[in-house]
Design a protein around this nucleic acid. Structure first.
Length: 353
DNA sequence: CATACGTGGGC
DNA sequence: TGCCCAAGTAT
C-alpha cells in the first residue's frame, strides 16, 4: 500500500511560485475578492459550499446589500435571511450563518475569531471554511481541501486509488506542510485560492486544459495521460422517484401556502398544499400540468391541480402569499410552478423551438 | 465512514 | 433524458 505521499515530488518553491504567478495573471474578478474583509470572505465561503460561482454572485451582491455587516445580519429575522437564500440550496447554511453572526456579536465582540479552534466551534464552519477564512482574510497559514484541490492533487500526483477519507487526510497533511513552508510566507490565502481557481478554470473535471496549466510539466497524470480518469470516485447512489399532487388555490394575486416541515422539500421554505391535505376542505379542479424537481438523490414529479377553498377560513400555519413579494423563502418546485404560470400568461414560448 | 442536505448547469 | 458536478458541514 503506497498510501498518500507525504511530500511533493519537487521542492515546494518549484510548485508554489509558478502557481502563484499563474494566479496573479489569471484570477477571475469576483465580488468578494476586491475587498477580502472577513465578513465578505465568510459569507462568500458559506454560499460557495457545494455551489457554483456563477450561481453565488447575484446572491452575494443582494445579501451584502441588505446585510452589509455582521451586526446588521445578527439583528435580522431568520425568515428574511431564508428569503434571500431561497434558490441557493442547503438552507441550514443560512440558518447557521445567522446563528454564527449572533455568536460573533455576543461572544467575539463583533469580529471573527482569528483562531482555528475558535473558528471551528462556530456553526457551519468546518475545516475547509475555517482554513479559507483564516488564510484569505487574516493571512494565517492554514490549508484548504475541497473538490478542486482534491482533483488537482489526485492528478498532479497520479493518485490512482479511490479518492476516500484516507486520501483526503493525506492531502490535508501534505498541504499543512506546504503552507507552513518558507515558499509561502504570508501568502497562504493566495496559494489556497490559486489551487481552487486552477481546479475551477483549468484542471476541470472534464476536458482539463493541460496546455494552459502552470503545473503541467511535473503533473504525473498528464505524463501518463491519466488526467481524464482521475480522481477515482465511488459510485453514486441511485435516484429515488416520488410522485405527489399539490393544489394551486388563488385569492386575487395571492396563493395559498404553508411552511414545509419534512423531507424531501427543504424545511422552513414554503410550499403549496397537497391536494389530499385533510386539514383543508378543497374542491379540486382542472390539472395545470406537471413539474419535475430534483432534490439530491430524489426526483419528484409534482402534479399541479387548480383548486378552490370550501369555506372562508384557512387552518393554522397556512398563509396567503403574493408570489411577486413573498417575504418568505419558496421551495424550488414552487418557484418552478410560479415561473411556468408567469411564462404562460406573458409572452408564450420564450424558449420555443 | 456513510448519509442528509438543494439547486442549476453541462453534455 | 439521465447523470455528473459545484469553494462542505453535521450527524
Amino acid at each position: 500500500m503506497p498510501g498518500f505521499p507525504s511530500q511533493l515530488p519537487v521542492p515546494a518553491a518549484d510548485f508554489v511560485l509558478p502557481l502563484l504567478d499563474w494566479y496573479h495573471a489569471n484570477r477571475r474578478k469576483l465580488p468578494w475578492r476586491d475587498n477580502p474583509h472577513w465578513y465578505r470572505v465568510w459569507v462568500s465561503e458559506i454560499m460557495l459550499q457545494q455551489t457554483t460561482v456563477k450561481a453565488v454572485v447575484p446572491y452575494f451582491d443582494a445579501f451584502l446589500d441588505r446585510f452589509p455587516d455582521v451586526r446588521t445580519l445578527a439583528a435580522a429575522e431568520e425568515a428574511e435571511v431564508l428569503a434571500l437564500w431561497a434558490g441557493l440550496g442547503y438552507y441550514s447554511r443560512a440558518r447557521q450563518l445567522l446563528e454564527t453572526a449572533r455568536i460573533i456579536c455576543s461572544a467575539h465582540d463583533g469580529s471573527f475569531p482569528a483562531d482555528y479552534r475558535a473558528a471551528l466551534a462556530l456553526p457551519g464552519i468546518g475545516r475547509y471554511t475555517a482554513g479559507a477564512i483564516l488564510s484569505i482574510a487574516f493571512g494565517l497559514p492554514y490549508p484548504v481541501v475541497e473538490g478542486n484541490v482534491s482533483r488537482v492533487f489526485a492528478r498532479y500526483l497520479a493518485y490512482a486509488d479511490k479518492w476516500d477519507g484516507r486520501a483526503a487526510r493525506g492531502l490535508w497533511n501534505l498541504l499543512s506542510t506546504i503552507v507552513s513552508s518558507s515558499a509561502i510566507a504570508d501568502r497562504a490565502g493566495d496559494f489556497n485560492q490559486a489551487l481552487m481557481e486552477l481546479g475551477a478554470t483549468v484542471c476541470t473535471p472534464r476536458h482539463p486544459d493541460c496546455r494552459n496549466c502552470p503545473l503541467t510539466l511535473a503533473c504525473a497524470a498528464r505524463r501518463r495521460s491519466m488526467q481524464h480518469s482521475l480522481p477515482v470516485k465511488r459510485q453514486a447512489r441511485s435516484v429515488i422517484v416520488l410522485d405527489c399532487t399539490v393544489a394551486l388555490v388563488r385569492q386575487g394575486q395571492k396563493i395559498l401556502m404553508r411552511p414545509n416541515q419534512e423531507a424531501p422539500f427543504p424545511k422552513g421554505l414554503w410550499e403549496l398544499p397537497r391536494s389530499n391535505d385533510e386539514s383543508l376542505a378543497l374542491e379540486i379542479g382542472n390539472s395545470l400540468g406537471t413539474v419535475t424537481h430534483g432534490i439530491t438523490h430524489h426526483l419528484i414529479r409534482i402534479q399541479v391541480v387548480g383548486a378552490s377553498l370550501v369555506g372562508a377560513s384557512i387552518p393554522n400555519g397556512y398563509r396567503w402569499i403574493d408570489p411577486q413579494n413573498p417575504g418568505v423563502g419558496l421551495s424550488g418546485y414552487v418557484r418552478k410552478v410560479l415561473g411556468r404560470l408567469q411564462g404562460q400568461q406573458g409572452q408564450q414560448g420564450q424558449k420555443g423551438r
